[in-house]
């Protein structure tokens, strides 16, 4: 199915957010996630099922003012 990850449309096979992060290469990095503008904590990623068209944000620390 197709989902949008950080603004980019991708074809993926994962059914859950946890699997998706592994599939697209975020395995060991500390990131924070949101699906369709709703925060998904680390503890909920394995249960968070994805649907075609979902918009996923994967964020990490950055410089800020």
């Amino acid at each position: 199915m197709k989902v949008t990850i950080n603004g980019e449309l991708r074809e993926v096979t994962s059914r859950t957010l946890a699997d998706l992060l592994q599939e697209v290469g975020y395995g060991s990095i500390v990131v924070a996630t949101a699906v369709n503008e709703e925060f998904v904590p680390v503890s909920a990623r394995a249960q968070r099922e994805l649907s075609a068209g979902d918009v996923i944000e994967v964020l990490s620390p950055m410089q800020g003012g």
């Binding site: 950080n6 697209v24 990490s60 620390p61 950055m62 800020g64």
Partner: peptide, 30 residues
Amino acid sequence: TVSLRRESANVRAGHAFWQLISGLGVRVLP
């Protein structure tokens, strides 16, 4: 102060930045 931005699975810039800040012994305000 620090922020959050989209992380690339390849570049991992955020990871490197966070390691730098963590080593400074200061509190962070996201």
